[in-house]
């Protein structure tokens, strides 16, 4: 017995190490996106509070650029107002504000925490459940998609950034063509994402615009993503396209949280025939 105790005393260091590592590794391996989001949410109360204050102060230094951005946005919206016919006749009619035709609801939010240097990047915005934010709402900026919400507390929400190699996936297409592929980040540059599995019949050129598609439960269709920077044929069967993002994720301050009003209904009806996953990998790892 004494020998056993002495033996344990001698190897207690290694035993403790193994026990602690086992805990950490099991959390790392089994922690799925929801657990991770909960952890981020738990930390967000303290940390987000501080980031909120920092954003308050640093916001002043960007006021001029912010004004320019708003004026551009107003100009863009005005030009849409002056072309009602165009929007009534096309898919853009979805954005019509007439009740009953509205599919997407926009709501402004401020980014108070953001990272671009990791592999799994998240954003925190200063709106939470009390402001009507819910998981699976899209985040878009004026000039492109940014991410989607995964967890909300009362006053803050954590979102998966488009710069997230594991948890972000959506579908995208070249403007003017019907061929869709999946959009994901390969972790190389915070200005570029990959548009993969575009059929070889697709016709594209460097500089073409890449948009979101109708396939997503989260992102509105025809939202800009970026432009084709380069593309290569893989195995002679499909194109792998490098897309330069319109949005500079490093500088992003303001986003819109977008609620897809028919999300639940569409998910329910599509799941009845087993196509709840239009493209099983469309929305990164989501059920």
């Amino acid at each position: 017995m004494l020998k056993l105790l002495l033996f344990f005393k001698r190897i207690h260091y290694a035993l403790l190490f193994i026990a602690l590592e086992a805990i950490a590794i099991s959390v790392f391996l089994h922690g799925n996106i929801y657990q991770k989001a909960r952890i981020a949410g738990a930390s967000s109360r303290l940390v987000s509070g501080v980031y909120d204050k920092i954003a308050d102060v640093s916001g002043y230094f960007g006021l001029r650029a912010e004004n320019d951005r708003l004026i551009e946005e107003i100009a863009r919206l005005r030009s849409q107002l002056n072309a009602p016919r165009l929007y009534a006749d096309t898919a853009f009619a979805r954005f019509d504000s007439v009740p009953g035709l509205q599919y997407y609801q926009y709501q402004p939010a401020r980014v108070i925490r953001n990272s671009i240097g990791k592999r799994q990047n998240y954003l925190t915005i200063d709106r939470g459940t009390l402001d009507g934010i819910e998981p699976e709402m899209a985040l878009v900026a004026d000039d492109g998609i940014v991410g989607y919400v995964v967890h909300c507390s009362d006053h803050f929400s954590v979102a998966v950034s488009i710069l997230n190699t594991e948890e972000f996936r959506t579908s995208g297409c070249i403007k003017g063509s019907d061929f869709a592929g999946s959009v994901y980040w390969d972790g190389l540059s915070h200005r570029e994402v990959i548009l993969d599995e575009i059929p070889k019949y697709a016709d594209m050129q460097v500089g073409d615009t890449v948009l979101t598609t109708n396939y997503s439960y989260i992102f509105p269709p025809d939202q800009p993503i970026g432009t084709v920077a380069s593309f290569e044929m893989v195995n002679g069967t499909f194109y792998k396209v490098r897309v330069r993002l319109f949005t500079d994720l490093a500088r992003i301050r303001h986003v819109y949280a977008v609620r897809y009003l028919d999300q639940e209904e569409r998910r329910a009806i599509e799941s009845t025939v087993g196509i709840s996953e239009i493209g099983p990998r469309q929305e990164g790892g989501r059920p």
Binding site: F17, L20, E21, I23, A24, I25, S26, V27, F28, L29, G31, Q35, K36, A37, I39, A40, A42, S43, V47, K118, Q120, Y122, V158
Partner: peptide, 21 residues
């Protein structure tokens, strides 16, 4: 230390694994 940083950065377990090591 690893767990504390995990909690602040939102990546579950990664820092704990490496800093224990």
């Amino acid at each position: 230390a690893g767990v504390a940083v995990d909690f602040m950065s939102g990546i579950a377990g990664l820092h704990a694994i490496v800093s224990t090591w």
